[in-house]
C-alpha cells in the first residue's frame, strides 16, 4: 500500500509493507536517516518526530496510519545555509557526543521551545525525559537548552 503525507513541507508518497512503523518508512523508503532506531518501543526518544504538531516516537506510529499527516523530522529544521537555533546551541555547548540521541533531542527541544520559550530547569528536564542520552549525562544538553531561554526558536 502507498501512503501520502507531507514530510518537512513536501508532499511525499511511500510504499508501506504491513504494519511497519513510520520510523522504518522514513529511514528505509524515504531515505530520511535522521530519526534513529534504538529501542522500537518508545523508551528512548531517538526516533522523535513531530506529527500534526504532536511530539511522537515515530517507531510507535504505524506508517499506514500516517496517511494525510504532516510530519516534521530533524531534516526539516535547518535551512540550506543555517542551522536551527537548537542545533546551533547543541553544537556550541558540547551537547553532542556520539550523537545518536541528538536528532531526537533536537526535535524534542525545538517542540518544547515552540510551546514554552523560557522553560525552567525542571520543565526542561521533564519535557526531555522521554529522550535518553547515554554519553553526556545530560549536563551539556541542559546548558544548551538553557542558553536558548527566551530566544524564540
Amino acid at each position: 500500500m502507498n501512503v501520502h503525507f507531507t514530510v518537512n513541507g513536501e508532499e511525499r508518497e511511500a510504499a508501506v509493507q504491513g504494519p511497519e512503523s513510520l520510523l522504518f518508512v522514513l529511514r528505509e523508503r524515504l531515505g530520511l536517516l535522521g530519526a534513529k532506531d534504538a529501542c522500537e518501543q518508545g523508551e528512548c526518544g531517538s526516533c522523535t518526530v513531530i506529527v500534526d504538531g504532536d511530539l511522537v516516537c515515530s517507531c510507535l506510529v504505524m506508517a499506514a496510519d500516517a496517511e494525510g499527516t504532516e510530519v516534521l523530522t530533524v531534516e526539516g529544521l535547518a535551512t540550506e545555509d543555517e542551522l536551527h537555533p537548537v542545533q546551533q546551541a547543541f553544537v556550541e555547548h558540547g551537547a553532542v557526543q556520539c550523537g545518536f540521541c541528538t536528532p531526537g533531542f533536537v526535535v524534542a527541544t525545538a517542540h518544547l521551545l515552540e510551546h514554552q520559550p523560557a522553560p525552567t530547569e525542571p520543565e526542561i528536564r521533564e519535557a526531555l525525559s522521554g529522550n535518553i542520552c547515554r554519553c553526556t549525562g545530560y549536563g551539556a544538553l541542559l546548558r544548551a537548552v538553557q542558553s536558548m531561554g527566551g530566544a524564540s526558536p
Binding site: 518508545g42 523508551e43 526518544g45 522523535t48 504532536d54 511530539l55 511522537v56 516516537c57 510507535l60 506510529v61 524534542a108 521533564e126 519535557a127 525525559s129 522521554g130 529522550n131
Partner: peptide, 8 residues
C-alpha cells in the same frame, strides 16, 4: 511514559 507517549 514520556511526553512523546502522552501526546498520543
Amino acid at each position: 511514559g514520556s511526553p512523546q507517549i502522552r501526546s498520543v
